[in-house]
Simulated assay, not measured.
Amino acid sequence: MDDFASDTDSDYTSYWRDWFIAARGNEYFCEIDEDYLTDRFNLTGLNTEVQYYQYALDLVTDVFDIEVDDDMREQIEKSARHLYGLVHARYIVTTRGLAKMMEKYKQGVFGRCPRVICSSQHLLPMGQHDTPSHSNVKLYCPKCEDIYNPKSSRHNSIDGAYFGTSFHNILFQVYPALLPPKTQRRYEPRLYGFRVHASAALMRWQEERREEMKERLRVKGLEAGFEEGEEGEGGEESEDDEVGDGQDGIDDMFEGGGAVAAAH
C-alpha cells in the first residue's frame, strides 16, 4: 500500500514536466531531475529574470495549489515554460543532463544535417547567445561545423538561450568518441566532367600572390616606384619604361607560378 502511494506521489510530482516534454515542439528538451529543480543553488539569479518566479517554480515542481483566474494562470504558465528553459540550459551541462542529451543525439532526435556531403550526420541544438530573447535555437553539425535552422516552425520558435552557446562543445569534450571526423570535401561545379571557372580561380590566385608581393615591396620601402608604374599616365618615358618593365616581370613571374600551380 505504501509502495502504491509512493508511486502515485512520484507520478503527480513529475506531471507538469511530463506534460511539457511530451508537448509537440518540445522534443529538443530533456526532463530535468526533480532534485535539481528543488536545489535553490541551481536556480541562483533566475528570480530576477522570470516573472511570477515563485508561482512558476511551484507549477514546474507540481506544488502549485492556489486558485487563480484564467489570465493569471496563463501568465504563470508562460513564466513556468521560461523558467524551465533557463534551468534547462544549466542542467544539460551537468553529468546527468549530458547523458540524457547524448542519448537524444545518438537517436537523431534533433535531426540530420541537410548538407549532402555530411551523409545525414546527426545534429545538436545550440544557442548563439546565452541571454534570452536574442535569437532562436539553431542546429549544429559537428561534421561540417556549420549551423542550420530547424525545419519545424515549432522548433524554430524556441529561444536559443534554453540550450546555451557551450553545450554542444562540452558534450564532445565529455564524449569524444561521438565526435565525427571532419570533412574537407567541397562540391565542385563541373560541366561534362570539367571544373567550371578554373581560369577565374587561377586569376584570383595570381591576384592574391601579386598583392602579397606589393605588400612586401611596401615594407622594404619600394612602394613609390612600384605604385607610380601602375598609376602613371604618360610620364617621362625612361621612368615609365623602367617601372613598367618591373611590373611586367612581376606579372610574368606570377603567371608562370600560376601555370605551375594549375599543372599540379
Rank of each mutant, 00 (worst) to 15 (best):
D69I: 08
D69G: 14
D69R: 03
D69T: 09
D70Q: 11
M72V: 13
M72F: 03
M72S: 09
M72I: 06
E74P: 00
Q75V: 05
E77L: 07
E77G: 05
S79R: 02
S79Y: 00
R81T: 12
R81N: 10
Y84P: 10
G85L: 07
G85D: 12
G85M: 10
L86M: 13
V87M: 13
V87Q: 09
V87I: 15
H88R: 06
H88Q: 05
A89P: 01
A89L: 01
R90W: 04
R90I: 08
I92W: 08
I92N: 14
I92S: 08
I92H: 13
V93P: 05
V93R: 10
T94D: 11
T94C: 08
T94H: 05
T95E: 15
T95H: 14
R96A: 14
G97A: 10
G97V: 06
L98I: 12
L98K: 08
K100S: 08
K100I: 03
K100E: 11
E103L: 12
K104S: 10
Y105K: 03
Y105L: 06
Q107I: 00
Q107P: 00
G108T: 02
V109W: 06
V109I: 15
V109T: 15
G111F: 07
R112G: 01
C113E: 07
C113L: 09
R115N: 13
R115A: 02
I117R: 12
C118P: 04
S119A: 14
S120F: 11
Q121H: 05
H122C: 10
P125F: 04
M126E: 12
Q128E: 13
H129Q: 04
H129D: 04
H129R: 09
D130Y: 01
T131W: 00
T131R: 12
T131S: 13
S133Y: 13
S133C: 12
H134L: 07
N136E: 13
N136Y: 06
N136G: 13
N136D: 11
V137F: 11
V137S: 03
K138V: 02
K138T: 02
K138S: 04
K138F: 06
Y140A: 06
C141R: 02
P142H: 09
K143Y: 01
K143I: 08
D146E: 14
I147M: 13
Y148F: 15
Y148I: 03
Y148V: 06
N149H: 05
P150H: 05
K151F: 03
K151R: 10
S153W: 06
R154N: 12
R154F: 11
H155S: 05
N156F: 11
I158Q: 01
I158H: 04
I158V: 15
D159E: 08
